Simulated scan of single mutants.
Amino acid sequence: MQTFDVRQLDVFSSVALKGNPLAVVLGADSLTDQQMADFANWTNLSETTFLLTPRDPEADYRVRIFTTLKELPFAGHPTLGSCHAWLQAGGTPKGEEIIQECEIGLVRIRRQGQQLAFIAPPLLRSGAVEPPLLERVRLALGLTPHAIVRSQWVDNGAGWLALMLADRDQVLALQPDYSQLHGLAIGVIAPCDPSRDDIDTHFEVRAFIAGDGAQEDPATGSLNAGVAQWLLAEGLAPDRYIVSQGTAIGRAGRIHVERQGDEVWIGGAVAVCIEGHVQL
């Protein structure tokens, strides 16, 4: 049995306990794949990460990302939370940006005041959603035939399929039948109306991951990174905007999106809630 430093952080919120929780195990090089998977399953969080020595000489650190069910090649809030934990533990980047190595490759991260932001990775899958699958998702979400305004694959490693609805109230009213969504990662987005919606954001988002320990994700970096590339490419969002997520489950996630030239950055606040040790 070995002892490891561990942090539990809140990502994408400046208000304590209102973001997306993440467990980070530091110095995890000696852990086996099974030990990582078992601990991630035990935490019952949407993701748990393990920080390791990088294999790529350009990287500052390496991260492995586990849900309660499987390992992911990339995820957004684990990227920002892991980076924050690495910096807090004394990590010093080799350059102005922090370079994270994960299974999808190298991910650039930068500090923006009190926030961190990662560059949206390229989409592994985009384009139209197959009609039979879209109909399955529509029925599982309890939507009327014409409620889906747009749909798109926005998969950057986490398998996201995204739908756009007409307004925020429709998004917040969703009550998914998770038994019909098993094996899928579904993001739903709608524009906020400042004249009607009492909120300071441009879009409302919900993220559903059927079968996972946390079936609705409170604030999702990978989904918003994929959605941002979709919306910006089609002129459906301004170059800088803020997303609200987690409202329906009592959270207050805020994801900041900014396009700079050909790059899209996804940022937010991170706070440490728990520091301690774990024996594995």
Rank of each mutant, 00 (worst) to 15 (best):
N41H: 14
E103G: 15
Q245H: 11
F39C: 07
T247A: 14
G211V: 05
V270K: 06
E103C: 08
R150I: 04
R254W: 03
L181D: 00
R150T: 06
L52G: 07
G113F: 09
R138K: 08
S244T: 06
H146R: 12
D197Y: 11
R108D: 11
M164T: 10
D169G: 06
Q100F: 05
P191H: 03
L9M: 11
L231V: 13
I99A: 08
Q88M: 11
I99Y: 01
P132V: 04
P73M: 11
V278W: 12
R125C: 03
R168P: 00
E263W: 05
W153G: 02
S82T: 09
P21F: 13
S244R: 15
V6A: 11
E234Y: 05
Q35D: 07
N156Q: 10
A248I: 09
H182V: 13
V129W: 06
P57Q: 14
T144R: 15
V278P: 08
H146M: 03
A162M: 01
G226S: 07
R64A: 06
G235S: 07
P238S: 13
V257M: 12
I249V: 14
L163R: 02
G187S: 07
Q8W: 00
D10V: 01
G157V: 05
C273H: 14
P122W: 08
W86S: 01
F12N: 09
Q175W: 00
A16F: 11
G95L: 04
D29L: 12
K18A: 14
G211F: 08
Q215W: 04
Q170E: 07
G221F: 09
G268Q: 12
D38Q: 14
D198G: 04
T92I: 15
L52C: 13
L116M: 11
N224K: 00
M36F: 08
R206I: 01
I148H: 08
G268E: 10
I109M: 14
G267L: 10
T49P: 02
H256V: 11
L87N: 03
I65E: 04
V264T: 15
R150G: 02
R168V: 00
D193E: 12
E204F: 03
A190H: 04
G211M: 11
I119F: 04
D169M: 09
P57V: 10
